[in-house]
């Protein structure tokens, strides 16, 4: 990403040829920073290595701390703190379901926690990336959010609660899966409906047409064009164009 004084910032995103925003200040700034945030970001090209050296250990330490098996007491206090952070919002998010915002499921640990974290993370969209889930994004925001998912699951929050927590602060935008109620339900209903509709059209077409010549459906002879001279001449032409010898038996 370069920025020059003239209000032109171009961002190079992780997976695309280039992104240029040269207009509104708002967009420019906000998203300029997004791209910055995903990794150790430093100002000048010549200092980038030292910058990454400063930030990389921080990142590594965070990861290391995560990777190390925490002591039981530490884990307990971690889950207390996550409940403290999350419960208020959750109680508001879906008062019917979450009541007091306390965990509604069993605390998870070990392989079950790993597995569930991966599964839930794949359903939460990374807000700073473009389209990938927090499970797939290497950006530090996504890593933070994934850690939050993990902590919530470890404290006994259910998958549904975790998702509602993120939806509460980010909106439905954060769900990789569109909601199944309200207007977005269209996206779930339309494809099966289209399939059904298409199938009906095909059936209608077949019935409509087969009424005329149908009769000897018992006759299994695959004589395709025997009863239709026009089709026979068409077929002969198609085959000639294709360099085929006179029609084969099959």
């Amino acid at each position: 990403m370069r920025a020059d004084g003239a209000g032109h910032v171009s961002i190079r995103v992780q997976a695309g040829p280039s992104l240029n925003f040269s207009d509104e200040r708002r967009r420019r700034t906000n998203w300029a920073c997004l791209a910055w945030r995903s990794t150790a970001a430093v100002r000048h090209p010549d200092t980038y290595v030292s910058g990454s050296k400063i930030l990389a250990p921080v990142f590594v330490l965070i990861l290391l701390a995560l990777a190390l098996p925490p002591r039981a007491s530490a884990r307990a206090s971690a889950s207390q703190s996550i409940i403290h952070t999350v419960s208020g919002a959750l109680a508001h998010a879906d008062p019917e379901d979450q009541r007091d915002g306390l965990p509604a499921g069993q605390p998870l640990s070990g392989a079950a926690l790993d597995q569930k974290t991966t599964q839930v993370a794949s359903q939460v969209r990374c807000p700073v990336c473009q389209g990938s889930s927090i499970g797939d994004s290497p950006s530090s925001t996504a890593q933070d959010m994934k850690r939050e998912v993990r902590q919530m699951l470890a404290a006994g929050y259910t998958e549904r609660q975790v998702i509602s927590y993120f939806v509460y602060s980010y909106g439905d935008f954060i769900r990789e899966k569109p909601p199944e109620h309200g207007f977005p339900a269209v996206v779930w209903i339309a494809p099966p409906l289209l399939l059904l509709l298409g199938a009906l059209v095909v059936v209608f077409w077949l019935r409509n047409k087969s009424r005329a010549p149908a009769a000897e459906e018992t006759a299994p002879a695959p004589a395709v064009a025997a009863d239709d001279p026009e089709l026979a001449s068409w077929l002969a032409k198609v085959r000639a164009l294709d360099g085929e010898k006179p029609p084969k038996g099959s």
Partner: peptide, 10 residues
């Protein structure tokens, strides 16, 4: 006027 995402799971 709502923002939704349609991602991989869908």
């Amino acid at each position: 006027g709502i923002q939704v995402s349609v991602g991989e799971p869908y």
